[in-house]
Simulated scan of single mutants.
Amino acid sequence: MIELVIDQRRKDLGGFEVGRVLPFAQRRMVGPFIFLDHMGPAEFASGFPRSVDVRPHPHIGLSTLSYLFEGEMTHRDSTGVTQPIRPGEVNWMTAGRGITHSERFETLRDHGGRMDGIQTWIALPLEDEETDPAFSHHAAGELPEFTEAGLTARLIAGEAFGARSPVKAHSPMFYLHWALAADARAELPADYSERAAYVARGVVEIDGQTLHEGQMAVFAPGGAVAVRAVTQAIVMMLGGEPVGPRFIEWNFVASSKERLEQAKADWRAGRMKLPDADDKEFIPLPGDPPPPANPMS
Rank of each mutant, 00 (worst) to 15 (best):
Trp92Gly: 02
Met29Ile: 12
Trp267Asp: 05
Arg20Gln: 15
Pro292Thr: 11
Glu43Trp: 11
Ser165Arg: 03
Pro56Gly: 06
Pro41Arg: 04
Gly162Ile: 04
Ser78Asn: 08
Ala181Phe: 04
Arg271Ile: 07
Thr79Asn: 12
Met237Phe: 07
Glu194Lys: 06
Pro166Lys: 08
Ala224Met: 09
Gly223Lys: 11
Glu72Cys: 08
Glu258Pro: 08
Ser297Trp: 15
Gly222Ser: 15
Gly214Asn: 05
Ser66Ala: 11
Lys264Ala: 11
Gly14His: 06
Leu285Ile: 15
Asp132Asn: 13
Ala134His: 10
Pro84Lys: 03
Gly223Phe: 09
Pro290Ala: 09
Lys264Phe: 13
Met173Trp: 00
Glu205Asn: 02
Leu62Met: 07
Glu281Phe: 11
Leu155Ser: 00
Arg195Phe: 07
Pro275Val: 10
Asp53His: 06
Asn251Pro: 08
Gly117Met: 01
Asp276Pro: 12
Leu211Trp: 03
Ala163Val: 14
Ser63Trp: 06
Met173Val: 10
Asp207Val: 06
Val199His: 03
Arg97Lys: 14
Trp250Lys: 08
Asp276Ser: 14
Arg228Pro: 06
Val90Arg: 03
Ala277Leu: 15
Leu65Ser: 01
Ala265Cys: 12
Leu188Ser: 07
Ala277Gly: 11
Gly270Lys: 08
Ser78Asp: 07
Glu145Thr: 15
Met93Phe: 04
Ile156Gly: 00
Phe33Met: 08
Pro84Val: 00
Gly162Gln: 01
Gly222Pro: 07
Ser51Asp: 10
Val18His: 02
Arg55Pro: 02
Asp37Ser: 04
His75Cys: 03
Val225Gln: 05
Ile206His: 02
Ala163Glu: 14
Arg20His: 12
Ala254Trp: 08
Ala263Glu: 07
Ala140Gln: 07
Ala160Ser: 11
Ala182Phe: 06
Ile85Gly: 00
His137Met: 11
Gly270Tyr: 12
Asp278Leu: 01
Glu106Leu: 11
Ile34Ser: 13
Leu238Val: 08
Val18Met: 07
Ala163Asn: 12
Glu3Ser: 09
Arg28Cys: 10
His101Lys: 13
Gly162Lys: 04
Pro295Cys: 04
Phe247Ser: 12
Ala149Leu: 12
Tyr198His: 03
Leu285Ser: 15
Leu176Met: 05
Glu142Pro: 02
Asn294Ile: 04
Ile156Leu: 07
Asp266Ala: 09
Asp7Met: 03
Ala224Thr: 10
Asp191Leu: 14
Glu241Asn: 10
Thr64Trp: 05
Ala163Tyr: 11
Ala182Asn: 06
Val167Ile: 10
Phe247Leu: 13
Pro242Trp: 08
Phe252Met: 09
His212Ala: 13
Ala42Ser: 14
Phe24Gln: 10
Gly244Phe: 09
Arg55Leu: 14
Pro189Thr: 13
Phe69Ser: 01
Ile99Val: 15
Gly239Leu: 06
Gly158Ile: 03
Gln119Glu: 00
Ala220Leu: 05
Glu89Gly: 05
Gly112Val: 00
Asn251Ser: 13
Glu89Tyr: 00
Pro56Ala: 02
Glu249Ala: 15
Val52Ala: 06
Ala42His: 12
Gly80Gln: 14
Val18Arg: 04
Asp183Gly: 09
Ala217Gln: 04
